[in-house]
């Protein structure tokens, strides 16, 4: 991926390799926080913040500390530490700035710590050999793609709530079905 231009890296992360619908990372917040459009937008912004900063910090840690010292085997644990502390930041901020959003996001806000999309992004940045600018753009694209599909699914679920979905399928089952068809639609975005 490192040979692509910045524009292409952004679109690849947002559409062609969409983290949720093509690589199936971060499915848990995708289904957990997609009940309301507003809260899903809030979640998207939180993930954008965590993804961007986490990518930059983990990239620098890897480049200047882990790799030169031959400590590659500590990669996972270091990255999780960085992500977890960033999530704590976001949590404090959201709690203070918007208690309603804090309530709406509930358990899924601290769970960004274990959001595999963030971790996957941080690892992909270093394994794909991206430089720091490319890492930044890749993170922005990944977060944009994540937010886009999250908000789309939230729109669909709000829409389905006011329609006569058959009883056994109402709620999560039909959301999963809609997500599956959405993934079919994204399967057309192949480079």
């Amino acid at each position: 991926m490192s040979e692509y231009g910045l524009f292409m890296i952004f679109f690849a992360a947002a559409f062609f390799n969409n983290f949720v619908l093509i690589q199936f990372l971060g499915i848990c917040p995708f289904l957990g926080v997609s009940k309301r459009v507003e809260s899903s937008l809030g979640m998207g912004m939180a993930v954008l913040f965590v993804m961007t900063l986490a990518s930059l910090i983990t990239w620098m840690l890897h480049e200047f500390l882990l790799f030169p010292l031959g400590l590659d085997y500590l990669r996972t644990i270091t990255f999780i530490l960085v992500i977890a502390s960033l999530v704590q930041f976001v949590e404090l901020f959201v709690q203070k700035a918007s208690p309603t959003l804090y309530k709406a996001l509930g358990i899924f806000l601290p769970l960004i710590t274990t959001n595999c999309a963030v971790m996957g992004l941080a690892i992909m940045n270093v394994t794909e050999g991206l430089n720091i600018i490319q890492t930044l753009v890749h993170a922005l694209g990944a977060a944009a793609g994540f937010t886009l599909v999250l908000v789309m699914l939230a729109g669909l679920r709000e829409h389905l709530e006011i329609h006569d979905v058959p009883k056994p399928l109402a709620g999560v089952p039909v959301a999963l079905l809609a997500a599956g068809i959405l993934a079919l639609a994204f399967s057309g975005f192949v480079l």
Partner: peptide
């Protein structure tokens, strides 16, 4: 794919 994608955008 274009139409399926936009179908999903309709509620928004």
């Amino acid at each position: 794919y274009g139409i399926l994608f936009m179908n999903a955008m309709v509620p928004l």
